[in-house]
Computed example of a mutant assay.
Amino acid sequence: MATRAAYFSPSEAQILMEAYEEVKDIIKKKGNTATVIKQREKAWQSIADRLNALNMNGPKRTWQQVKIKYKNILQNAVKKNTHRQGTGGGSPKADLTPAEDMALELNKGRPVLEGIPGGKETSIGSSQDATRFIQVSGSTVFLLEPPAQAPDDADPSSQAIRKLYGNHLRRQIELADIDIQYKKKKMENLALESEIKKRTIRKLDLEIKKLEREVRYAFNVHCMLTVTQMY
């Protein structure tokens, strides 16, 4: 029986989405041939490897767990966004996490969630600009680019869009900081590996010099014994 994956921390979820962005073209590649399926598995595995490298003391993630976690992040993000904009009914849910916000950003213009019970085509308020940001057709949600310029601030839908876009900008800053920390850690690891190699080379050099001294000593002793025997 498969064991349940350990809890993914918010930072792990952000790193997962960042790594997914780098290989999304491979994962989303059309086709079900053995080659394409293998490429997708390697892409998911690369994300798992990145998480495991940055979390040495934490639980080790498999590519299957990473794939399921990505789907959960995307589904939760769409459900939250749909409820918040009044398309799914019920009370508004909590704000999106940075990872969920990124999931929505990476899937703009794509059908990212199917089978929402009671889903129907709805706009955000009365503003036509708002309908360009999120649309629901049947049971499929489409996320679209926000308007280049925000409408009148007096329009509630305009304020909602401005808030979403503000969240997007904050997420970009947070992800940039995570990327910097990841690259810094990678540089530290490379520096450590370089120092280990230098020490290994110095150790080998000392061993070689020691062997050379032993060989010279043995040769001198042999020569002395040979001369002694001659006399």
Rank of each mutant, 00 (worst) to 15 (best):
K79Y: 13
L192K: 15
P151D: 12
T131Q: 01
L211M: 14
A6C: 06
I68R: 11
K29D: 02
T200L: 05
M17N: 04
M1C: 13
I196L: 06
E121M: 12
H222R: 13
K184G: 08
N107M: 08
A5I: 03
K38H: 09
R110L: 03
Q128M: 10
L225K: 12
P111S: 00
I180R: 09
G89M: 13
R199G: 10
A191F: 07
V141S: 00
G138E: 01
K80T: 02
A150Q: 05
A43N: 03
E18R: 07
W44Y: 13
I201D: 03
F133R: 09
K183I: 02
E22H: 05
N32H: 13
L143S: 01
D95G: 06
T122G: 04
T97Y: 05
K163D: 10
K163H: 11
Q65P: 01
A160R: 05
R132Q: 14
Y217A: 15
Q75R: 10
N167L: 14
N76I: 03
L225A: 13
R50P: 05
L113G: 03
T35D: 14
F142I: 00
G90L: 08
I47L: 15
V23M: 13
I134E: 02
N76C: 09
S127E: 10
R162C: 06
L211P: 07
A6N: 08
V36C: 11
L225I: 14
V215W: 11
I124G: 01
R132Y: 02
R132H: 06
T228I: 04
D25G: 01
I201F: 02
A2C: 02
G88Q: 09
E22R: 14
D95R: 10
R40E: 10
Q75I: 09
D155E: 12
N52M: 05
R110C: 00
S194M: 01
A130V: 06
R40Y: 02
A99F: 09
E12S: 05
I178V: 08
K185T: 03
R61P: 05
K42C: 04
